[in-house]
């Protein structure tokens, strides 16, 4: 069974407003607080994760911090990680590629990648990423070189993961900003690999 996008029901849209109204009446929440948290969530985007990756590609000290303490690395980019579970970062190598999934729910490092995409939350992705990761990768057109291992890592309610992909060949001497333009949400989850061409187009 697939889980295609559906709109929420009128009943649940009404329930949300009744719940918010009841909480406001009791002074538990305000509309301003909800708006502020919504703005923070909307600001979070894969660009943050992409900038962290580009910095790690160019700055060995930052790379060391990112791999040791992802939360501190994110905070050094001005991201508030308060209330968020720790962020772990998985380093791809020439031998091992990482793929992130949350089999139990949909745990995702929202603070550095933004709202999770629909497919990440789908039953098909959650079920199959651990069983047949290469088949899932192939659906993105991602084919790993022969001999490269796939390591699938389960994000949980208590620990969130992001991938540090390999820096693409042909990007020697590129600025951090140009490198960041190569990196997308899909690379940070591990379903696709960055290449030099996309960034060349973006930088043109």
């Amino acid at each position: 069974m697939s889980t295609p996008y559906k709109a929420p029901s009128a009943e649940n849209i009404a329930l949300l407003e009744k719940l918010v109204a009841a909480l406001k009446r009791r002074g538990i929440v305000t509309e301003e607080e909800i708006a502020r948290r919504r703005e923070t969530a909307e600001r979070a985007s894969p660009e943050t994760g992409a900038r962290m990756v580009a910095r790690a590609w160019t700055d060995p000290a930052f790379r060391e911090l990112l791999l040791r303490d992802g939360t501190a690395a994110a905070e050094s980019f001005g991201v508030s990680m308060k209330g968020n579970p720790p962020l772990g970062v998985l380093e791809d190598t020439a031998e091992v590629h990482h793929l992130v999934v949350c089999t139990l729910c949909s745990c995702y490092p929202r603070a550095v990648i933004g709202y999770p995409p629909h497919w990440y939350k789908s039953a098909a992705y959650r079920a199959r990423a651990v069983r047949e990761p290469r088949a899932v990768l192939a659906e993105w057109g991602t084919v790993l070189p022969a001999g490269v291992q796939v390591r699938v890592v389960d994000s949980t309610a208590d620990y969130r993961w992001m991938v540090l992909p390999l820096r693409p060949e042909g990007t020697e001497g590129w600025s951090e900003e140009r490198l960041a333009s190569l990196v997308t949400r899909d690379h940070l989850v591990g379903v696709a690999l960055p290449g030099a061409t996309a960034g060349a187009a973006a930088a043109a």
């Binding site: 069974m1 497919w119 039953a123 992705y125 959650r126 079920a127 199959r128 047949e132 899932v136 379903v191």
Partner: peptide, 10 residues
């Protein structure tokens, strides 16, 4: 296995 043959539809 229920979702074995379901594409992820990226």
């Amino acid at each position: 296995p229920r979702f074995r043959c379901v594409p992820v539809e990226p």
